[in-house]
Design a protein around this nucleic acid. Structure first.
Lengths: 168, 168
DNA sequence: TATTGTTATACTCTATAACTATA
DNA sequence: TATAGTTATAGAGTATAACAATA
């Protein structure tokens, strides 16, 4: 967004918190703020890669999810649960992906209430192209060391489990 | 958003990546996806706390930033740089905070181009109330162990420095 | 010329509520 | 009754571009 700051604003905030008598929660506050900021940086990188392909991150996640389903198809409700997004967000994403020809809606064979989302050949090709681009330009150059990646995976899995994301 | 999933979807995705020949970037992909998901969980908790106070996270950040400024006032451009948000986002946030009586705009004493944002007494009181609530209900119960908090702070600071957030 | 900030506009994603159809 | 999905509507944040005023 601009030139680098001379000092780390999150470390400064942590010191401010301590100085104002919040020493007991200053460190978690700093960690949580850092997660927020890191997410901003990463989402910006991801969207820079996806934009030329005509995809947003939310739509890429949908295509990637479908491409890993054995049959290339999933019920709307299952996509909502796996992607952890609101059902209306799924409807919205599928509407746009369908209009662009990357997915199609189909009736469920046995349950008349549910709609299946199916990946089209164009959608599958785009998902593969986008995944290759993200792997090369974002995940392959994350800037995290191997050890730090392992630490992040473990720490954040513990957090997500405790937050009720999954049972395991 | 729903019941816990039986399995960790990010760990599953990591295995899928490996199975599809992306083993070299599967771990960073999982770490980055976990950061995204963790941010979602945390922002939801934060907004649940701020909503009864009539604040969004973006507006709380603005109030908190001003409350730590020695004079309680900052130029728009400085707020944009420190909060790492677009100038139009600052204009938007200040418009709404000003309308609610929590900040006011004032001309800069020496540079006629710049606008100073000043915290009102009501704004300062609200910032303190919101900070106390967040400390008690979010940062004080983050679910991270002390060691993990230290790891996160260190790992994410390294990442942000490398990403050009700050020089240090 | 460059910088600061605003305005207008547009596009995400998200959320609530009301609704239809099916189980 | 409960579940699946859609629609309508609203709100938030973000971004670009054009612009005014000042340095």
């Amino acid at each position: 967004m601009g030139a680098p700051l001379p000092r780390d604003p999150i470390a400064d905030a942590q010191r401010n918190w301590e100085r104002h008598g919040w020493g007991d929660v200053a460190a978690p506050m700093a960690a949580i703020t850092a997660i927020m900021r890191t997410q901003q940086i990463l989402i910006a990188r991801i969207e820079d890669v996806l934009k030329p392909l005509g995809l947003t991150f939310a739509r890429y996640e949908m295509l990637a999810l479908l491409s890993f389903a054995r049959t290339g198809a999933l019920p709307m409700s299952k996509a909502s649960a796996l992607l952890q997004v609101h059902p209306t967000s799924v409807t919205n994403a599928v509407d746009r992906l369908e209009k662009a020809g990357y997915v199609s809606r189909a009736p469920h064979p046995t349950d008349g209430r549910t709609t299946l989302i199916e990946l089209t050949p164009e959608g599958r090709a785009l998902a593969e192209k986008a995944t290759a681009a993200l792997n090369a330009e974002v995940f392959g150059r994350s800037g995290f060391t191997g050890d730090d990646v392992e630490s992040l995976i473990r720490i954040l899995a513990d957090f997500r489990r405790q937050a009720g994301d999954f049972a395991d």
